[in-house]
Design a protein around this nucleic acid. Structure first.
Length: 572
RNA sequence: CGGAGCGUAGCGUAGCUUGGUAGCGCGUCUGGUUUGGGACCAGAAGGUCGUGGGUUCAAAUCCCACCGCUCCGACCA
């Protein structure tokens, strides 16, 4: 490809819409352009990189035995009603109507479609296992699209669905996908960590997320250098110390005045001096069935994903101040669970047997001290509800845990029979008995992966593409583009030779000053630049410059071999 | 949806407080000089100042409404 024949609209200045470096570089390097919030056009260069990611995904999925197919993006709402997700996923579903006013949904994911297909086509254990995948555009009515391709209303996802006869077989399928994902991200040049994850609205037994460590990531992962434990913070647990107030001498509850004290923090100060770990934090939530109380130690934070697990539902919200006052007779800041029997009380494990605690009195301006949880509070459900923090000892080995922000690029789930049961994907087993297929589902955000590569691999001058996903592997930069010049003739020859050897090459034939061409090639981030100018040519040399390495003078006749060698060894 | 901020030429922005001819840089076009790290000179094109309404002799500027974008939170590949 000749630079002047394609469209690479690089920008010197950063458009105001971009906040994080990968988004800025996607725009500046001329890879994408925004149509409107959350919707982007891939320009020729961006599309080439995207296709390379897709191809890696395709190759690894195929070699893991998965079968590619393509399902409709437009789906009938009936199958979503059948699976129950028409309600549970309604917030992300784009809905459209046809001319007959019939409603359709734009697929945010395809469990319903694939399960419907399998219900019709697979009837026997002899046809299992099967794993189907597609690379396709998904639509999600995101609350807030952001960071360019990172979270968009429309994005490209690879989604795969495994069907097995037994739970054990399903675990094998899961493992195969886990391994395939590891290879895919490795080939994309990404450092990823696989973490234990919460299953969220997808449902299922357990799951792993593939995370790219990055400060700009939207997730937090907790990991241990000692034993390799790694989990999404929503799921992570740690070995935390028992309440220090445990040994406090038992004494009767005492109410005391705390005018104006509305926070844990305020109660830690004089004249009260109650340490946060001697306080009980009382949160009031509204669930469908009514009001519930959540108790945590004063210095702990609620993990809402864990609360979802404890409550058995994801439909809850913090109660409004009026609702709280109606329920407990006090406002936030003076709340407590002592003597409360009307509402279900959920408490974090860390409060078990805690004594000598201080909590709100359910009377504005008053607190209670000398509270013993076991004696004074009727806790209905005990569970782990707290957010893990950096430095806490690892659950498995006791080493201090670390916390790191990360970008989620892949997520794999074991679904069990949830969808196969709802959509009648049944088969006959060896004994002639009807069974629901055991499913797994496996997603990769392809467009997001592309951006994650940039987020993880760049410098002040621009993108540093790994060879595997670079839009072009080599950029040839002649400093004189007059067709009859020696420089241009040599450039053309190298271009032809490399192309003949199967290398993706772009020839920067623009009649621009060297500085402009060097800056652009570095901004776009081609892995190798071959510079040809009068000075080097006078010595019979060209300049081979790896994007992230030092310039290498190479004899003209060895240039092609040198480039091929670099691609094969140093950069692959 | 709640909170914050911003909409002026393709991009980045000044002007708004205190109403009075819409300015600068980059990019684009023409001519010339240049040619190893985002050149220089001369000239040129390009603007519904987000949209609608209001106040006023006069609105980019003040007021109201709406729309859009960005950031923080809930959602997620």
């Amino acid at each position: 490809m000749r630079w002047s024949d394609t469209l690479i609209p690089t920008l010197k200045e950063t458009p105001a819409e971009a906040e994080i470096v990968s988004h800025k570089l996607l725009l500046r390097a001329g890879l994408i352009r925004k149509l409107t919030g959350g919707l982007y056009t891939f320009l020729p260069l961006g599309l080439r990189a995207l296709r390379k990611v897709e191809q890696i995904v395709r190759e690894e999925m195929n070699s893991a035995g998965a079968l590619e197919l393509l399902m409709p993006a437009l789906q009938p709402p009936e199958i979503w009603r059948q699976s129950g997700r028409y309600e549970t996923a309604r917030d992300v579903l784009f809905k459209v109507r046809d001319r007959a006013k019939k409603e359709w949904v734009l697929g945010p994911t395809h469990e319903e479609v694939i399960t419907t297909l399998v219900a019709g086509e697979i009837n026997s254990y002899r046809q299992l296992p099967k794993n189907f995948y597609q690379i396709q555009t998904k639509f999600r009515d995101e609350i807030r699209p952001r960071f360019g391709l990172m979270r968009a209303k429309e994005f490209i996802m690879k989604d795969a669905y495994s069907f097995d006869a037994t739970d054990e077989a399903s675990q094998v399928s899961y493992r195969k996908m886990f391994d395939a994902y590891t290879r895919i991200f490795q080939r994309c040049g990404l450092k990823t960590i696989a973490v234990e994850a919460d299953t969220g609205v997808m449902g299922g037994k357990f799951s792993h997320e593939f995370m790219v460590p990055a400060e700009t990531g939207e997730n937090e992962v907790v990991f241990c250098d000692g034993c390799g434990y790694a989990a999404n913070v929503e799921k992570a647990a740690s070995r935390v110390s028992a309440p220090s107030a445990l040994n406090a001498t038992p004494s009767t509850i005492e109410k005391f005045a705390t005018p104006g004290v509305l926070t844990i923090e305020a109660l830690t100060e004089a004249p009260y001096n109650v340490a946060a770990d001697h306080q009980i934090k009382t949160l009031v939530y509204k669930v469908e069935s009514g009001i519930v109380l959540i108790l945590l130690r004063g210095d702990d934070q609620l993990n809402e994903a864990k609360l979802t697990g404890a409550l058995g539902t994801a439909t809850f919200r913090p109660a409004e101040p009026e609702e709280i006052f109606t329920a407990l007779g006090a406002h936030p800041g003076s709340l407590g669970a002592v003597g409360v029997s009307k509402f279900t009380v959920y408490a974090d494990e860390r409060l078990r047997s805690a004594a000598g605690m201080t909590t709100g009195a359910n009377e504005d301006g008053f607190h209670l001290r000398h509270v013993a949880v076991d004696r004074d509070i009727h806790v209905k459900h005990w569970s782990d509800l707290r957010l893990v923090r950096a430095g806490e000892p690892c659950l498995k080995c006791g080493q201090p845990l670390k916390v790191q922000r990360a970008i989620e690029v892949g997520h794999i789930f074991r679904l069990g029979a949830k969808y196969s049961q709802a959509l009648n994907a049944l088969f006959l087993d060896e004994a002639g008995k009807q069974q629901p297929a055991i499913m797994g589902c496996y997603g990769i955000g392809v467009t997001r992966t592309l951006q994650a590569v940039i987020e993880q691999s760049h410098d002040d001058n621009g993108i540093i593409w790994p060879v595997s996903v670079a839009p072009y592997t080599v950029c040839i930069t002649p400093l004189n583009v007059a067709p009859d010049s020696e420089v241009m003739k040599r450039a053309e020859q190298i271009y032809a030779d490399l192309t003949a050897r199967g290398v993706d090459v772009i020839l920067d034939d623009r009649n621009d000053r060297p500085g402009v061409k060097f800056k652009d090639s570095e901004l776009v981030g081609f892995p190798i630049r071959v510079g040809i100018g009068e000075k080097s040519l006078a010595k019979g040399e060209v300049e081979v410059k790896p994007r992230a390495g030092a310039l290498i003078p190479v004899k003209l006749e060895q240039a092609v071999e040198k480039v091929l060698e670099l691609i094969k060894h140093t950069l692959a």
